[in-house]
Design a protein around this nucleic acid. Structure first.
Length: 493
RNA sequence: GGCGGCAUAGCCAAGUGGCUAAGGCAGCGGUCUGCAAAACCGUUAUUCCCCGGUUCAAGUCCGGGUGCCGCCUCCA
């Protein structure tokens, strides 16, 4: 079975062949730390989190590098606006970024380098570009001479002439060609600076990634990723820098995730419709957002709305409710160690076969360019099979039942882990969801528990009128009571 | 102006030329329940934006049209 992935550079799905058997080196462009992360950052982070999780699930040893751009015009602007040193602005948003990612259940990268720790490497790379005749100095600035690099435009699929025709290139008299980009910028008064052969200055945006990827992954590595907006100019320029200097391919595969829209509109600061991760997590649980994102293919645009997120949450409840059902029966602790595949009665065997199909189909979907939407379809298929089985078995649990359910649990947990889902204990999941909702709505838990107790007594006395009255009263507060035998649980609608 | 993408049920969404077009949400009918909820069973696209073409066979390939969207400037 082979993993195939869509390579932006060739615009085709290709079979994945790592440089070193069993290992994968992946570099993803991280954030510029000048503001809080929004849902778009969340998508990118979740996409590459699932990609690295799946690569590990498949047995690869993954080295995942995701950088922080901690010196840049916008950070400097923010520093000026707030009166803080630029390094403190960066520090603050790095910390916030990490908190957000932890909250989303995104695994930390193997290395999270910062641009300012690699200034020396950048200077050396720029010098190498001078030696190759690809860089030129103009005052205290250094630019990359785009037309000296023949394959410029190969990633984004455009030629220099096409781009020249575009009206929106900025006019800068210091550049030989309007498409040339800055490798090094002279610092102005009050801006951070580093000494360099070209005077006091700071690096251009693109150079850091060329340097840090080589530092941690080598001149050529397996996968380079980022948001689709980075294809041009950022990644194109990285290629020009890295390949211009080394003469070797930068990355063998390029992966780009699609954008998030909000209510069918592009999310952007100018439209004022960005939604920060912090805000969003105040009203929804992280796993629901993850499920929502994974229900679309990573390259498609995704439209974020309150209702689509609410739907995803219901889907997540469905998954956890199956996990809860399994847990409940397994808690019976009957010994099933003597059950074997061969001794399994046909009816159980039939269910087991369908459940055992999950990891196989899951891998088949994920191997096809990380098709998480299809993979989730298979997961829900297995959920339905399990639910049916659960409904049939509940009355008379046998050792065979436990054997089958134990296997189901393993498969759900295994595939779930590869997606970053189903990591919580199901009981905790539902209690947490309920208590969170209750506190958001300011409901008094003691009062609810008291009324449930009263209703329990009414039911015992077959006083259905009183029991129903309590149900209705609580229902008005959106509290749904669920009777199961003699116990009653509740949840928020 | 240049480059690229998308159009599948009420909504979201997968679909790698060939058995009955995944899955989720919503809806409807039923089972279960004192009543409910959850769960389960059944049901919801004779058809995949439109028009041509290739093929024994097309949602899937090709050409044309229409409609959305992205990038080309900082952006995940």
């Amino acid at each position: 079975m082979t993993l195939r992935l869509y390579n932006t550079c060739t615009r085709k799905k290709e079979e994945f062949k790592p440089i070193t058997e069993g290992k994968v080196g992946i570099y993803v462009c991280g954030v510029t730390v000048y503001d809080s992360c929004h849902v778009g950052h969340a998508r990118s982070a979740l996409v590459f989190d699932v990609i690295t999780r799946y690569l590990k699930y498949r047995g690869y040893e993954v080295t995942f590098v995701k950088n922080f751009t901690d010196v840049d015009d916008k950070i400097i602007d923010k520093a000026k606006a707030t009166g803080l040193p630029f390094s403190e602005v960066a520090e603050r948003y790095i910390r916030e970024h990490n908190e957000d990612m932890d909250a989303l259940g995104v695994e930390r990268p193997t290395v999270a380098p910062r641009a300012t720790d690699h200034i020396g490497g950048m200077i050396r790379l720029i010098q190498a570009l001078f030696e190759k005749g690809l860089a030129y100095q103009a005052g205290g600035d250094v630019y990359y001479a785009v037309e000296k690099f023949p394959s410029y435009g190969k990633l984004s699929g455009r030629g220099l002439d096409d781009m020249m025709a575009g009206a929106r290139v900025d006019v800068n008299e210091k550049k030989n060609n309007p498409l040339d980009f800055a490798l090094w910028k002279a610092s102005r008064e009050g801006e951070p600076w580093w000494d360099s052969p070209w005077g006091k200055g700071r690096p251009g945006w693109h150079i850091e990634c060329s340097v840090m990827s080589r530092e941690f992954l080598g001149e050529t590595f397996d996968i380079h990723g980022g948001g689709e907006d980075l294809v041009f100019p950022h990644h194109e320029n990285e290629i020009a820098q890295s390949e211009g200097a080394s003469g070797k391919p930068l990355a063998n595969y390029w992966i780009h995730n699609g954008f998030v829209r909000i209510n069918s509109e592009k999310m952007s600061k100018s439209l004022g419709n960005t939604c920060s991760i912090k805000d969003m997590l105040g009203s929804c649980r992280p796993e629901a957002l993850r499920l929502f994102m994974l229900q679309s293919h990573y390259r498609s645009p995704v439209d974020y709305t309150d209702s689509s997120l609410a739907e995803a949450k219901l889907g997540l409840d469905r998954l956890y409710s199956t996990m809860q059902g399994i847990k409940e029966i397994l808690a019976g602790k009957t010994d099933f160690s003597r059950v074997t595949m061969d001794s399994l009665p046909a009816r159980h065997r039939g269910v087991l076969d369908r459940i055992d199909a999950l990891p196989v189909r899951f891998a088949e979907a994920m191997d096809d360019d990380f098709n998480t939407a299809r993979a989730l379809g298979y997961l829900f298929d297995a959920v339905r099979v399990t639910n049916t089985y659960l409904a049939e078995e509940r009355a008379a649990v046998s050792a065979a039942t436990l054997f089958v359910l134990n296997r189901a649990k393993k498969h759900f947990e295994g595939t779930g882990r590869a997606l970053g889902l189903l990591g919580s204990d199901p009981d905790d999941y539902f209690l947490e969801a309920r208590d969170r909702e209750a506190s958001v709505r300011g409901l008094a838990m003691e009062e609810i528990e008291r009324m449930i107790e009263e209703r329990k007594q009414a039911r015992a006395a077959k006083d259905w009128a009183r029991a129903d009255e309590i149900r209705r009263t609580l229902a008005e507060k959106k509290i749904i009571l669920q009777d199961a035998g003699s116990t009653t649980t509740w949840k928020i609608e």
